[in-house]
C-alpha cells in the first residue's frame, strides 16, 4: 500500500498574522511589516509540513484571499465581484465576474505560489481551483456556454500546469467541491473530462489530483473515475466510505481524513481501519491522505493539532505494511 500525505487547501492564519493583517486594514501597520509576518508564517507552515514528512509542501497558501482571487486579479477577462458564501460555511469569497472569454497571463500565477513551493518545486504542491468549480461559481457574462467555459478553463489550466511543471513543480491539486455539490451531467460532464484530459496531457508526468469536499462523492464516482488524473479525493466526513465503489481500473484514491468542521481530532485507529478496508475493496494504486476540506475553517492551533494525524495515520499504515510507503 502506497500512502502519501499532504495539505489539500489553505492553512489557517496564526494569531500574529491575524493581528498584523487587521492592523494593516486599520492603517496601524505598514505593508512591509505585514509582509515580514506573512513570510515568517509561510516558512513556519512549510517547516511543519516537512517535519511531519508530508509528501508535498504548500506553505499554506496564506496570501490567497480565496481560491479564485489570484486568477480574477491577474488573468484577462475578469473583475472581482461581490462577497459570496463559500458553500455551506461561514466564510466568503469574492465572486469573479467574467466579462469576456478568459485569457491567462504567463507567469502571473507562479508569482502567487508560496515561496516554499517555488524554492523546492520537486516537493512543492500547487493548490489550484478546478475548472468545473471555477466555471460554476463565477458570474459568467462572457457569452460562453458553461460547457465551452469549462473546456476553455481546462486548456488555460493545462497551460498553467505546463509552465509550472517546467520549473520542476511535481504536484498539482485541483480543488473541485462543486463536482460533488452539483455533479455535472451530459455535455457538461464531458467538458469536465475533456478539461482534465488537457491538464493531464500538459502535466509531463507530474502528480495531478482532483480533491472534492463538502458533500458526499458517492453519486459523482462514475464521473470521478473517468477523470485522467493520478487520484481523486473525497471528504470522508461527508462520504460514507462503505459506499465508495470498487473499480476495475487501478487508480489512486484520496481520502479527506481530517474534518475541518470540528476541533475534535480524529481517531488514527479509525482512519487506518477505513483505509485498510478500502484497500481491500478498491485496490487503489496509492492513497493520498489529507484534510477533507480547507483547514482554514479552523483556527491555527486546532488545525496544527489535526495535521499531525496525517503523519500518525501514515505511520500506523506503514507499521502494518512492512514499512513500505
Amino acid at each position: 500500500m502506497i500512502v502519501r500525505t499532504g495539505l489539500t487547501g489553505p492553512f489557517p492564519r496564526p494569531e500574529p498574522l491575524v493581528a498584523a493583517t487587521r492592523d494593516l486594514d486599520r492603517g496601524r501597520a505598514s505593508p512591509e511589516a505585514v509582509e515580514e509576518v506573512f513570510a515568517r508564517t509561510e516558512a513556519d507552515v512549510a517547516a511543519l509540513e516537512r517535519r511531519l514528512g508530508l509528501d508535498w509542501v504548500t506553505g499554506g497558501y496564506l496570501r490567497w484571499a480565496d481560491p479564485f482571487r489570484p486568477f480574477a486579479e491577474t488573468w484577462e477577462g475578469f473583475t472581482v465581484g461581490p462577497l459570496t458564501r463559500w458553500f455551506q460555511t461561514n466564510t466568503f469569497f469574492r465572486q469573479p465576474i467574467l466579462h469576456a472569454p478568459p485569457a491567462r497571463v504567463p507567469g502571473a500565477i507562479a508569482g502567487w505560489l508560496p515561496p516554499a513551493a517555488r524554492q523546492d518545486p520537486a516537493h512543492g504542491g500547487a493548490l489550484l481551483p478546478g475548472p468545473y468549480t471555477f466555471a460554476g461559481l463565477l458570474d459568467n457574462r462572457s457569452g460562453e456556454t458553461p460547457e465551452a467555459l469549462v473546456h476553455r478553463l481546462g486548456r488555460l489550466f493545462a497551460d498553467e500546469v505546463r509552465e509550472l511543471a517546467a520549473t520542476g513543480l511535481a504536484t498539482f491539486e485541483f480543488s473541485e467541491p462543486l463536482l460533488v455539490d452539483r455533479p455535472p451531467e451530459g455535455a457538461l460532464a464531458e467538458a469536465v473530462v475533456a478539461a482534465y484530459r488537457s491538464i493531464h496531457d500538459a502535466s509531463d508526468g507530474a502528480t495531478t489530483f482532483v480533491w472534492t469536499y463538502g458533500a458526499s462523492a458517492v453519486a459523482a464516482f462514475p464521473l470521478l473515475d473517468r477523470l485522467p488524473v493520478t487520484a481523486v479525493g473525497v471528504d470522508l466526513a461527508e462520504t460514507d466510505w462503505e459506499e465508495i465503489p470498487a473499480t476495475s481500473e487501478r487508480r489512486g484514491l484520496g481520502l479527506g481524513i481530517l474534518d475541518p468542521r470540528t476541533t475534535l481530532v480524529e481517531d488514527p485507529a479509525e482512519v487506518t481501519r477505513i483505509v485498510r478496508a478500502l484497500n481491500e475493496r478498491r485496490r487503489p494504486t496509492q492513497f493520498l491522505l489529507g484534510p477533507g476540506g480547507p483547514l482554514d475553517l479552523l483556527p491555527w492551533e486546532p488545525a496544527t493539532q489535526k495535521v499531525h494525524l496525517l503523519a500518525a495515520a501514515r505511520q500506523a499504515l506503514q507499521d502494518g505494511n512492512g514499512g513500505r510507503r
Binding site: 486594514d25 484571499a65 461561514n90
Partner: peptide
C-alpha cells in the same frame, strides 16, 4: 475559544468549541 477564523480577506471571527 481557540482563536480566529478568517471570514474573508482580512476579516476574522472568533469561534469556540
Amino acid at each position: 475559544f481557540h482563536g480566529h477564523v478568517r471570514s474573508f480577506d482580512h476579516k476574522y471571527y472568533l469561534k469556540a468549541s
